[in-house]
């Protein structure tokens, strides 16, 4: 059985890239939260949350994105989020495009 979410963390020239693809929802968001926490703990230069492979995102996923964004503002880390069409839709639904560090 293929897991509904795959998370991979890899180093990038700027710092760390956390790639998540599949479905980001109540059941799988935890994995991305953990990966982000690990990446942020390592004090990288920049963190890229690459969600370009996300096919489905629900309110839990949305909350994750908002939380990451709020955290980066508070801690002064450089965060950038790469959306997928599904992620874009939800961001527009919530009308928070202007608030998020999207790339």
């Amino acid at each position: 059985m293929v897991p509904s979410l795959q998370v991979v963390t890899e180093p990038s020239p700027e710092g760390v890239r956390v790639l998540a693809s599949g479905e980001l929802d109540l059941h799988t968001a935890g994995d991305v939260t953990d990966a982000l926490a690990t990446a942020e703990a390592g004090d990288p230069g920049a963190v890229v949350l690459d969600l370009s492979g996300i096919t489905f995102i629900d309110s839990t996923g949305l909350r994750l994105i908002v939380a990451a964004s709020v955290r980066s503002t508070r801690n002064g880390n450089h965060l950038s989020i790469v959306p997928s069409p599904a992620v874009d839709r939800v961001i527009d639904l919530c009308d928070i495009r202007g608030q998020l560090p999207l790339s």
């Binding site: 949305l62 908002v66 709020v70 527009d92 639904l93 919530c94 009308d95």
Partner: peptide
């Protein structure tokens, strides 16, 4: 506010109403 837009069920069909506004409690 960051929520699915309401639907209006009328004789000539079902349409979405309202416009998107930000989610509450985040920023």
């Amino acid at each position: 506010c960051g929520h699915p837009r309401p639907l209006l069920v009328a004789p000539d069909g079902v349409i979405e109403v309202g416009e998107a506004s930000p989610i509450v409690g985040a920023f």
